[in-house]
Design a protein around this nucleic acid. Sequence first.
DNA 1: CGGATATTTCCACCAGGGTTGAATTCTGTC
DNA 2: GACAGAATTCAACCCTGGTGGAAATATCCG
Lengths: 201, 201
Amino acid sequence: MSGPESRKRRGRRPGGEDTRAALITAAREVFAESGYDGATVRGIAQRAGVDPAMVNHWFGGKEGLFGEAVLQLPFNPKTIADELASGGIDDIGKRAVTRFLTVWDSAGGGVFAALVRSVTAHEQAIHALRDLFLRHLFGRLAKKAGADDIELRATLCASQIIGLGMVRYVAQFEPLASADIPRVAAAIGPTLQRYITGPLD
Amino acid sequence: MSGPESRKRRGRRPGGEDTRAALITAAREVFAESGYDGATVRGIAQRAGVDPAMVNHWFGGKEGLFGEAVLQLPFNPKTIADELASGGIDDIGKRAVTRFLTVWDSAGGGVFAALVRSVTAHEQAIHALRDLFLRHLFGRLAKKAGADDIELRATLCASQIIGLGMVRYVAQFEPLASADIPRVAAAIGPTLQRYITGPLD
DNA sequence: CGGATATTTCCACCAGGGTTGAATTCTGTC
DNA sequence: GACAGAATTCAACCCTGGTGGAAATATCCG
């Protein structure tokens, strides 16, 4: 045995492989699966096919990698908010649900799971969620609808959307975890609609 | 110095102090604050004022303590379900929200946070949540209401209630985190009502 | 081609934390 | 009162995992 590939050769790698990018990709996956504490630098490095020390070299440590990989997600909340706010207000609830599920499904649910799972260990992640849901999204929509109790309405919307994400991506309760988007949007859309434009009692 | 109380005396303790119960109480608190991974046996033991080895002695290890302290909660889901099912079906949504918030608020939110935070690391906790929400509670209510799509309705209810718990106890978004129970019940009750008895589109 | 620099691996260190076994002290029973 | 057993503490072990430094190898630039 002692195959020639049993361990990597030392020193700089030949090709122009982007170790940094590989680490970020692997980190997104592992953080989404295991959360901040559960993820290990060694595990992430192994998935990326590089040495654990590279995390230190490129990001200064686990913390830095987390900030780079998870907290700067390709969400683009502003884009979503713009698009939602541009349409009519009458079916905003259903459109919001559709939009969220489309984005989150496309990432295999990893995006949402990564944020939620990291809330356990990271105050930063809570702030990121708060900004995303309250300020950029539902707060803006509720304001546009011209209702009172804007903050309460925004948090109510957040509760339903976050709960949907929990059940669909984290806990994976069936049948909601596998239901197709139109069906879910039809069921939950009216809830958001009422939270935004309807009476609260 | 060298105070006589600087370290505990060795051997069996004099009074009839219930070390086991003290550990369970401390474990509930610490698991709720930090989740399964974040909690340490040493920390729990310190809060209980006993030696870490007692966890092993009484529960066989951290795993056992978790099962005893968190998974067998004083929820009594069956009691809640009985009470909810016994009343009328017309205001079941509002009554369910009121009941949940009453139970969870009384424990300082620790009960809910403990379950959710432990989901990260524990398959068991997911099963516990599934049984609690789907089988014992909402599944039963939806069945009583005699509607179709019982499973879907139950998961929809779970999504709203779990989301409420997340926003109120874990993320603590205001104003929902501090709103009084009747106000929250008035706002969210109709959502559950529709998920249980209403049309789904 | 030759040094300077960047990239990468290996190795070792250290801290945190779960678990174990021996020693010690209390309780109960005859 | 003596002895069996239960409860408790202490000290140590060992694994996991993050981090830092030295060595090795590539690329870049003159």
